[in-house]
C-alpha cells in the first residue's frame, strides 16, 4: 500500500521540469539557494520521507527494497571490516606513530570532510587525508577505490555515525570548486548523453529496468558502502566511476580534482543529514 503511494508520487513527478537546476550555468545560483532548491525538490517529490531518512538512499523511497535491506542490516556484512579498520587505527606505522597522530587521536573525523583547504586551494577528502597521514609517516599511500583504505574509512565512519553534514564554502576560491563540481554533475556526457541528474534528480525513485534509482539527496552520507555486487566495501569515488561507466563515459580517477569537487558539491547538498557509514547496498 505504502509502496503504491510512493510509486504514484514518483510517477506524477516524472514530468517535473528540472530547468531550475539543469538548464542554468553553475554560477547562476549560490550554494545557499541550491541547498534550498534541491532539498525542497526531493522533500516534495517524496512526501512523508523526513530529511534525515534520505541518508538511506534508495531504501528511503522504496518500501519493498527497504524490507530486504533491513534484514541485511540485522547482521551487517561490513561488521568484520570495521574491526579490521580498528586494528589498522591502533597499529603503529614503522616509525612508531599511529593514524591518531594525524587526527587528534580521535577516529570520529567524518564531519570535518570534505573541506576547502585554502592554503593549498583544493578540496580535501577523508581518504586523501588518510593517505597524507601515511606518506607523512613514511608509509606507502593506499589505493583509493577499494581494499585496505575502505577498512580504515569504515572504522572512522562508524565512530562518526550521527555527526551532521555541514560542508562549508568559505570563500570565492572554494565557491569556484563547488561550481566546478556542480557543472560536472550537470554536464551531459558519454554515448548515452546522461548527466548525473538525469538519473538521480529527474528519475529518482523510478525503475531503470529492475534497479530503483536513489535521490541525489543523502547520497554522500553512508560511505564506505558494502555492495552485494562488489562483495566488498568500496569508496564513494568507486561508485562515481561505476555510474560514469553506466553513462558510457570515461570515468575520472578516484581523488582526481574532478571527483573531489563533485564530492564537495554532492555532500553540501546533504547538509543537515547525519553521516551513517558504513552502509550496505544492493
Amino acid at each position: 500500500m505504502k509502496m503504491t503511494k510512493l510509486a504514484i508520487a514518483a510517477m506524477c513527478c516524472a514530468l517535473v521540469s528540472t530547468g531550475a537546476f539543469a538548464g542554468k550555468k553553475a554560477t547562476d545560483t549560490t550554494p545557499e539557494q541550491d541547498l534550498k532548491t534541491y532539498q525542497s525538490f526531493f522533500l516534495k517529490r517524496f512526501p512523508g520521507v523526513p530529511l534525515n531518512e534520505f541518508g538511506n538512499g534508495v531504501y528511503a523511497v522504496n518500501s519493498i527494497w527497504r524490507d530486504n535491506w533491513k534484514a541485511i542490516e540485522e547482521f551487517p556484512p561490513y561488521d568484520p571490516m570495521i574491526d579490521e579498520g580498528e586494528t589498522m587505527w591502533n597499529t603503529p606505522f614503522a616509525n612508531g606513530k599511529t593514524y591518531g597522530s594525524c587526527f587528534n587521536n580521535d577516529p570520529a573525523q567524518r564531519k570535518n570532510y570534505p573541506y576547502w583547504d585554502d592554503a593549498r586551494k583544493m578540496v580535501v577528502t577523508l581518504p586523501m587525508a588518510i593517505n597524507e597521514c601515511r606518506t607523512k609517516n613514511g608509509e606507502k599511500p593506499l589505493k583509493y577505490a577499494k581494499g585496505p583504505i575502505t577498512r580504515i574509512l569504515a572504522y572512522m565512519a562508524y565512530k562518526s555515525r550521527g555527526q551532521k553534514i555541514n560542508v562549508v564554502i568559505p570563500n570565492k576560491d572554494a565557491l569556484a570548486a563547488y561550481n566546478k563540481g556542480k557543472s560536472i554533475y550537470w554536464a551531459r556526457r558519454g554515448q548515452l548523453n546522461f548527466n548525473c541528474g538525469s538519473c538521480h534528480v529527474q528519475s529518482s525513485g523510478q525503475h531503470i529496468r529492475t534497479n530503483v534509482i536513489s535521490p541525489a539527496l543523502g547520497q554522500a552520507t553512508g560511505w564506505p558502502t558494502y555492495r552485494s555486487k562488489w562483495g566488498d566495501l568500496g569508496t564513494l569515488h568507486r561508485r562515481f566511476m561505476g555510474c560514469m561507466k553506466q553513462m558510457r563515459a570515461k570515468p575520472f580517477k578516484p581523488q582526481s580534482e574532478e571527483f573531489r569537487d563533485l564530492e564537495y558539491f554532492l555532500t553540501h547538498m546533504s547538509n543537515g543529514i547525519a553521516f551513517n557509514g558504513p552502509s550496505a547496498r544492493e
Binding site: 516524472a14 525503475h207 531503470i208 529496468r209
Partner: peptide
C-alpha cells in the same frame, strides 16, 4: 537488448520483462 536500444530500461513494452518507468 541491453547493449543496443535497451528501450525496456525506461519504457513498458508489451511482453518485455522488468521494464523501467522513466
Amino acid at each position: 537488448n541491453r547493449k543496443q536500444g535497451n528501450c525496456l530500461a525506461c519504457h513498458v513494452m508489451a511482453g518485455g520483462e522488468s521494464p523501467g518507468t522513466i
